[in-house]
Design a protein around this nucleic acid. Structure first.
Length: 762
DNA sequence: GTTCTAGAAC
DNA sequence: GTTCTAGAAC
C-alpha cells in the first residue's frame, strides 16, 4: 500500500548524517501516544527519549518548561525526542516548535483514532469502569476533540503523519522503529483524509450509548483511500512528490528527492496559493564558487528581509536539491530567529526545474545561478535549468544580454515553447551571477570577503529587484512613480529612469555585457567598482507609463480624431438615429453592444457629454459621472449574469481609446470572440492599459486624474493569459490556450470588486 | 476601430 | 507551402 511505501522509504541519507528528530505526538487521551513511544523506543536502533509532562517530575506531572528543557538537553546529546502530551491545539504545540531552531527535524504523528476507542481505553486505564467515570472520560475526550486543530506544515513541521486506525498506527510504528540513526524520512503530509472533521463521526451517538456501525472510516474503505484520491492530490501535491522519493530512495539519488522542507506553508493546500507570484532561487555562490555558508546565509536573510515588505504577498523560496543542505539549515534557523513570515519566505528541498510537477510548488519565476557567459553547461543549477528549459531559454537569454558580471541579474521571459514553461508554469528565468571564491575558477576574489559579501548582496538585490519588476508588471501599474513594465524587449532591473549604469569589476575582471542593470543602491557603491555606460538604449523600454498630464504638444485635449473614430461621438450626440442598435438611452448615457465585441458579452456605457472625449479629459468634477457610468455598467453586467452565471465581467476604460467619446467597457472575461484578432485587442483589455473603473474612480477622487498607460507599450507587451499569466507566441496560440485555461484570476483582480461575478461564484 | 495585404516567420 | 503580423488606408 501506498502508506507502506512512503513511510518505510528512507530518502537520501547517504553521507548525510540524519539529524535528531522531535516527534510531537498529537492525540486525545487514550489514543495510544505513550504506547506508541514505548514501542518505538524499545525496538529502534536510533536513540530516543520520551518526554511526558505527566511523569516528568519524578513520576509526577510537571510543567511545559521542564519538558522543553529536557527535550533540548536530549537533542543536544544527539538523541531524538518524543513529546508525549495531547498537543491537540496549535497553541500548545507552538512552544515545542521552537525546538526546530536547534537543527532538528520537527515531525508530528497524529493519532486521530475513533473517539469511541480513545474513550474506552481511557476508561479502562483509570480502572474506574462505570457510567460516571466512563461518562467523564467521554466528556473529556469529546471536549478535547472539539478543540482539536490538526497540525499543519506551516506550523514548522517538516513531516506530518496522520493515523486514523490501528493499521495506520502499525505502519507508523514500523516507520519509526525502522529509522536508523542516520536515516531520514520524506517531508510532507501523509495519510490525511478529512482535515476538517473536528469531532469524529459517531461520538455523540456513542455518548448516548448507541452502537454505531463503523462508518466511512472503516478499514475496508480506507484501504483504497490510502492511495491519495485525486482531490487530495490536488490539495496537497506534496504527496505527489512521494513517488519520486520512494522510487529513488534505493539509489539515494538526489535528483528525484522532492520534499517539503521546514518553514514551508502547506504547499497548495489552498489552491489559490498557486496564484501567488513566487520566486524560487538557489543559494548563490555557495556551491561551486565556495562562498562561506555562514556569511551567505546572513546575506540571504538580510536581503530577503529588505525585500519582503516590497513584495506584498509574493513569495521567495530558497531551493536546494539536497535534503541535509547546510545552507538551507542555516537560512531556516536564521529566518526563524528573525521571525520572517514563513508564508512569504521559506526553504524547499527539490529540483528547481521540477518544483511544480515534482513538488507541488508553483513558482512562476526561477532564478538561475548562471555563468558569466549566460550559456548552458557547467553542471549544477545552470546546466539543469538550461537543459530543462530547452533551446528557447538560450535564445531568449541572448535577446536580453550577452554576458553577466558578478552581482548582476538579468530577467528573461520564457516563451511558452519551453517545457519549463508548459509543464512547470515558469514564465521567467532570472539569471544571476554571484562572487567567486573558488581559486580553481576564473575571477576568484582570492578570499576577499569584504568584496565578496558586497557582490553577493548585490546579486541578491538584483535578483529580487528583477522579481519585483515582474510582480509589478503582472499585477498592475503602481500609482505614481512607475518604473517599468515587463516587455519582450526590455530588461528590467533596478531603477533605470536615468541613463542606465552598468557596473563591472575591476579591469582585470571586466566582462563585456549589455542590457543588465544593477540596483540603485549599488550605483552608490562605487569603491573598487567602475561604472560603464550601457551600450543599449533603454528609452523604449522605459517609455511605458507616460502619465497623460495634458502638457506638451499633442496633449490629450488636442488629440486629433480620424473620421472613423467619430462613430461613438455621433451616437452620443444623436442617439435617435441609431435607436434600434442601442440597449438603453438616458439623458446622460447610452448603453450599446460593441460593434465588434471582443468577448461573449461586450457592451459600452457611453457618456453623452460633448467635450469629454476620453479618460484624459476626466477630472474631479466628473467623479459623479464616473460613478453613474459604473453603476450603469454594473447593472447590465448583473443582468447578463442572470442569463449566464458562468460569465465574469470587468468594467474599465482604455488608457488611450481609439474611438472618441468617453466610454466604459463592460466585458466578459472569456474573450471568446472572432473579433479578437491581434495583439492590440488582447493587450488593451488584459494589461494595465485597461483601467478598472473602480480604480479610475478612486484615482480621480484622490488625485483628480487617472493614471494612463502609453498606447505604444500595448504593442510591446507579451501576450499573456489573463488568468494564469502564461505567455504565448501569437494570437491563435493564445486563443486556444484561453479557451481551456481555468486558472483562478490573478489576486489583484479579485480585490476591490474589479471582477463582477454571479453571486454563486463569489 | 476594421480591412486589406505584403512579406516575415515558420 | 502556410500562418501570422504589422502597416497603410479608411
Amino acid at each position: 500500500m501506498d502508506t507502506d511505501v512512503d513511510d518505510t522509504c528512507k530518502a537520501g541519507g547517504e553521507g548525510e548524517k540524519g539529524k535528531p528528530i522531535v516527534v510531537l505526538l498529537v492525540g486525545a487521551p487514550g489514543s495510544g501516544k505513550s504506547t506508541f513511544c514505548d514501542q518505538v523506543i524499545r525496538s529502534s536502533a536510533r536513540p530516543w527519549v520520551r518526554i511526558c509532562q505527566d511523569t516528568i517530575n519524578n513520576g509526577q506531572s510537571g510543567t511545559k518548561v521542564q519538558c522543553l528543557k529536557n527535550a533540548a538537553r536530549a537533542l543536544k546529546e544527539g538523541k531524538s525526542v518524543f513529546i508525549d502530551r495531547c498537543n491537540l491545539e496549535r497553541e500548545q504545540r507552538a512552544d515545542f516548535m521552537r525546538l526546530g531552531a536547534l537543527q532538528v527535524e520537527m515531525h508530528a504523528v497524529v493519532l486521530d483514532l475513533p473517539a469511541k476507542l480513545c474513550i474506552s481505553r481511557s476508561v479502562k486505564r483509570t480502572g474506574h469502569e462505570g457510567n460516571l467515570q466512563g461518562g467523564k472520560a467521554a466528556a473529556v475526550v469529546n471536549s478535547m476533540l472539539r478543540k482539536k486543530e490538526l497540525p499543519k506544515l506551516s506550523e514548522g513541521f517538516s513531516r506530518i503523519l496522520f493515523c486514523q486506525n490501528e493499521s495506520d498506527v502499525q505502519a507508523a510504528l514500523d516507520t519509526y522503529i525502522g529509522l536508523g540513526a542516520l536515516d531520514t524520512l520524506p517531508h510532507g503530509c501523509f495519510g490525511q483524509k478529512n482535515p476538517d472533521a473536528k469531532v469524529q463521526l459517531g461520538i455523540m451517538k456513542f455518548l448516548k450509548k448507541v452502537d454505531v456501525p463503523s462508518n466511512a472510516r472503516s478499514n475496508a474503505s480506507r484501504g483504497q483511500d490510502s492511495a491519495p484520491p485525486e482531490a487530495t492530490e490536488v490539495k496537497n501535491p506534496i504527496c505527489e512528490g512521494r513517488g519520486n522519493v520512494s522510487s529513488l530512495s534505493d539509489t539515494a539519488g538526489e535528483e528525484g528527492k522532492i520534499s517539503e522542507d521546514l518553514v514551508v506553508d502547506s504547499v497548495n493546500q489552498n489552491s489559490s496559493l498557486n496564484d501567488v507570484p513566487t520566486l524560487a532561487f538557489p543559494s548563490i555562490s555557495t556551491s561551486d564558487f565556495q562562498f562561506n555558508h555562514e556569511k551567505a546565509s546572513d546575506i540571504i536573510i538580510e536581503i530577503v528581509e529588505e525585500f519582503l515588505h516590497k513584495l506584498g504577498n509574493a513569495r521567495l523560496v530558497l531551493v536546494d536539491l539536497t535534503h541535509g543542505s547546510k545552507i538551507l539549515s542555516l537560512v531556516r534557523a536564521k529566518a526563524a530567529q528573525k521571525n520572517i513570515n514563513p508564508k512569504n519566505f521559506f526553504t524547499f528541498v527539490g529540483d528547481i526545474t521540477r518544483l511544480h510537477s515534482g513538488g507541488g510548488l508553483h513558482c512562476n519565476v526561477i532564478a538561475n545561478a548562471a555563468n558569466w557567459r549566460l550559456k548552458p553547461g557547467g553542471g549544477g543549477v545552470n546546466a539543469a535549468i538550461f537543459s530543462a528549459a530547452g533551446p528557447a531559454l538560450e535564445v531568449a537569454t541572448k535577446e536580453q544580454a550577452k554576458s553577466l558580471s558578478p552581482g548582476n541579474a538579468v530577467v528573461v521571459p520564457l516563451s511558452s515553447a519551453s517545457p519549463l514553461y508548459s509543464s512547470e508554469g515558469v514564465t521567467h528565468v532570472i539569471h544571476v551571477l554571484g562572487p567567486n571564491m573558488n581559486p580553481n575558477r576564473p575571477n576568484c576574489l582570492d578570499g576577499d570577503y569584504v568584496k565578496g559579501c558586497k557582490i553577493l548582496r548585490m546579486a541578491y538585490t538584483s535578483l529580487f529587484e528583477g522579481f519585483l519588476s515582474i510582480v509589478r508588471s503582472q499585477e498592475k501599474l503602481p500609482k505614481g512613480s512607475i518604473e517599468k513594465i515587463g516587455s519582450k524587449s526590455s530588461v528590467l532591473l533596478g531603477h533605470s529612469e536615468d541613463a542606465p549604469k552598468i557596473f563591472s569589476l575591476k579591469s582585470d575582471q571586466k566582462i563585456k555585457r549589455d542590457g543588465v542593470y544593477e540596483h540603485e543602491r549599488w550605483k552608490k557603491c562605487k569603491g573598487s567598482l567602475n561604472e560603464v555606460g550601457s551600450d543599449i538604449n533603454v528609452s523604449r523600454a522605459g517609455k511605458v507609463n507616460a502619465n497623460n498630464d495634458n502638457t506638451g504638444s499633442g496633449g490629450s485635449n488636442s488629440k486629433v480624431w480620424g473620421s472613423w473614430a467619430q462613430a461613438l461621438y455621433n451616437i452620443a450626440m444623436h442617439p435617435e438615429k441609431h435607436k434600434d442598435d442601442l440597449l438603453e438611452i438616458t439623458d446622460d448615457f447610452i448603453v450599446l453592444t460593441d460593434l465588434y465585441p471582443k468577448a461573449k458579452k461586450h457592451i459600452l456605457v457611453l457618456a453623452r457629454y460633448d467635450g469629454l472625449d476620453h479618460l484624459a479629459d476626466v477630472s474631479k468634477e466628473h467623479l459623479q459621472l464616473l460613478k453613474m457610468m459604473h453603476a450603469m455598467g454594473l447593472k447590465w453586467a448583473e443582468k447578463f449574469l442572470l442569463e449566464d452565471a458562468s460569465l465574469v465581467f470587468r468594467l474599465g476604460y482604455h488608457s488611450v481609446p481609439s474611438m472618441r467619446q468617453l466610454h466604459l467597457h463592460v466585458i466578459s472575461q472569456d474573450f471568446d470572440s472572432k473579433h479578437l484578432k491581434n495583439k492590440k485587442h488582447w493587450n488593451t483589455f488584459t494589461t494595465a492599459f485597461f483601467r478598472d473603473s473602480v480604480d479610475v474612480i478612486e484615482e480621480i477622487n484622490n488625485h483628480g486624474k487617472a493614471t494612463l498607460m502609453d498606447e505604444e507599450s500595448v504593442l510591446l507587451m507579451e501576450l499573456r493569459c489573463h488568468r494564469c499569466r502564461s505567455a504565448h507566441p501569437n494570437i491563435p496560440r493564445l486563443k486556444s490556450h484561453i479557451t481551456n485555461c481555468r486558472a483562478p484570476f490573478p489576486a489583484n483582480l479579485l480585490q476591490n470588486g474589479r471582477l463582477v461575478l454571479a453571486p454563486s461564484n463569489t
